[in-house]
């Protein structure tokens, strides 16, 4: 199980956060839009972080 999470932990987490982001803006305006932007920007932030720290 830990092997599975080691491989898929990050992708699953980012997918769940993205899905919350995709649905949030459909539910409401204002704060819901803000939540949507945060959640869809999160995977991009993680991408920037790994490219800065794990590229060698």
């Amino acid at each position: 199980m830990s092997g599975f999470l080691k491989i898929f932990g990050w992708p699953i987490l980012l997918a769940l956060v993205s899905l919350i982001g995709l649905v949030a803006a459909l539910i409401g305006d204002g704060a819901w839009d803000g939540l949507s932007w945060l959640c869809l920007a999160a995977p991009l932030a993680v991408l920037v972080w790994v490219l800065l720290t794990r590229r060698g």
């Binding site: 992708p11 769940l16 995977p43 790994v50």
Partner: peptide, 12 residues
């Protein structure tokens, strides 16, 4: 890595 971070969006 690029495929992994865009997975949910690209499927939706």
């Amino acid at each position: 890595v690029l495929g992994a971070v865009t997975l949910a969006w690209v499927l939706v």
